[in-house]
């Protein structure tokens, strides 16, 4: 693992900047997750992604158990920042 300074990461948004043009994982409100290639973002965490796949977890509210996953795909998608919980860079394993 590189030291944070050497890799140019000083603040949280640097991590997202270094993920530009790479595939990122995004967790959203409402049990939604996205995987897509990051092309743009701003300080509200509004995002523009391409080759996007969304997974919605459909949770049974009574038993609190996950019952199903619904998947959708888009070529190019704008995501409004107020729904974003986290953006995770691609794994470098």
């Amino acid at each position: 693992m590189e030291p944070a300074v050497a890799s140019g990461i000083q603040e949280p948004f640097d991590l997202i900047r270094l993920s530009l043009s790479e595939r990122v994982f995004v967790k959203l409100r409402g049990d939604r997750e996205l995987s897509g290639i990051l092309h743009a973002y701003d300080g509200h965490m509004n995002l523009i992604l391409s080759d996007v796949e969304e997974t919605v977890m459909i949770v049974d509210t009574e038993s609190n158990q996950t019952i199903n996953y619904a998947k959708r795909k888009w070529e190019m998608l704008f995501v409004r920042g107020d729904g974003v919980i986290l953006v995770s860079p691609p794994s470098r394993s």
Binding site: F13, R17, L20, S21, I37, H39, A40, Y41, D42, I48, S50, W74, E75, M76, L77, F78, V79, R80, G83
Partner: peptide, 23 residues
């Protein structure tokens, strides 16, 4: 929540450059 954009009218290279500069 989302806006589906017409991919052929989005210049992704331009977006990435502008995002880097903006930050």
């Amino acid at each position: 929540r989302y806006v589906q954009l017409p991919a052929e009218h989005v210049d992704t290279q331009l977006l990435e450059d502008a995002t880097r500069r903006g930050v």
